[in-house]
Nucleic acid binder design. Structure first.
Lengths: 217, 217
DNA sequence: TTCACGCTGTGAATTGATTCACAGCTACAA
DNA sequence: TTGTAGCTGTGAATCAATTCACAGCGTGAA
């Protein structure tokens, strides 16, 4: 259950990709897969795949590759799909709604169980199957459910306050879409998803083809 | 105009952040900023900031730091804000709409000038100020406008085809939200923004606090 | 039963990104 | 003036991520 070696954020991200393509492979009734096949499907190198599987201690067969369903189970376990994970979303703007739609029913174990907004017009209803509450009810609702993960889609000016309150409610992982650098206490994981930076980066390389070395993040 | 050294994708991403916080600093009438201040505001180290500014050849004063408005201008130029950049978005679902709302009017030089969808019910109207067309009009509309950058928010099953068509229309940078690994020809920059992976990563670290070393991407 | 091919697992090498550490400078104080 | 505190610019060192390269193995063909 406990990790012996420390796992890097990049590795975890790739695990998530492996899980997705393994799911597809399983659906198409593939029983085994070679590292170079999995690598191709994820846009990675075979060595990278083998290294990652090594870090979770999964081992394949030298002539048949990896057993798809066993590996899928193993990766899912690694990512914590064995026990239910509850999430909360704060900020029911266009982006928040889009994410509710995106994540709802994608995986029943990974469930957004509440959404919050400061605007009282947006609360007390159900959007894409998720119940919406006013922000000041956060503690009351999140704490008993043991919500560990929060998604922040509020305007930049409100984001730090929301982050602080989420952490107060016991949340230990934040996915932040607001374009500000949040401060969180040690032990809380923060991932920033900055849409503007991402777009400006693409536009930069689109306009500077000379710099477009093969980049696949 | 041309870059002498090759610029890494990470550096460009940080430039975009510098631009944002410099904009705020300028609004608050700050005239100068030290590398450690800028670093703090972006969640980086001072050495990192100095290194980045070095790569674009910007130089500050040892006692007053960097001139905010000069640096802002320089970074904006670097990112290509001097000439208009045109973008297209394909896939007008919830996420596509949210992005239209998010990017419209954020910067007039960086303009989403057309949106496309396969669903004929969604086309021939204006959403968040952006005109929507059927996908088969892409070439007709994008080519004359010299659109360089495309945003893909279609379902995974359609994404590769859309990517291919965008590239055919002369697009050289793609921001992909579909959860598949796209294939693009050399010289086309591809940035994947995988919401599921991002969320699963956060959930992983939220549930494994031991692995949550200080990570700020 | 034996052989050869092509795969995995992994130490070592490499590549890339970040931080260290310090020489040299500049504004301000005395 | 002269001193000094605190900054920048940057080579060198470090740290992290990825790839190389190969020993060893298992399977299917002959």
């Amino acid at each position: 259950m406990a990790q012996q070696k420390k796992i890097s954020s990049k590795t975890v991200e790739r695990m998530s990709q492996y899980r997705r393509v393994l799911g597809r492979l399983a659906e198409s009734n593939a029983t085994h897969v070679y590292s170079h096949e999995l690598a191709y499907l994820c846009g990675l190198s075979a060595a990278q795949v083998r290294r990652d599987l090594m870090t979770i201690g999964f081992t394949g067969s030298s002539a048949r590759g990896y057993d798809v369903s066993e590996l899928l189970r193993r990766v899912s376990d690694f990512l914590g799909f064995s026990r239910e994970r509850r999430l909360a979303l704060v900020g029911i703007g266009y982006l928040g709604r889009a994410l509710l739609d995106y994540f709802v029913d994608r995986n029943p174990i990974f469930r957004i169980c509440a959404a919050f907004d400061a605007d009282l017009d947006k609360v007390d209803r159900v959007i894409h199957g998720v119940r919406c509450y006013p922000v000041d009810k956060m503690g009351e609702i999140l704490r008993p459910l043991q919500v560990q993960t929060g998604i922040i889609t509020v305007p930049a000016s409100a984001a730090q306050q929301v982050a602080f309150e989420l952490v107060e409610c016991g949340v230990t992982g934040l996915l932040n879409f607001a374009p500000v650098q949040l401060r969180v206490p040690p032990g809380v994981y923060l991932e920033n998803l900055d849409l503007t930076s991402a777009l400006e980066k693409v536009a930069y390389f689109a306009g500077n083809p000379a710099d477009t070395e093969r980049e696949m993040k």
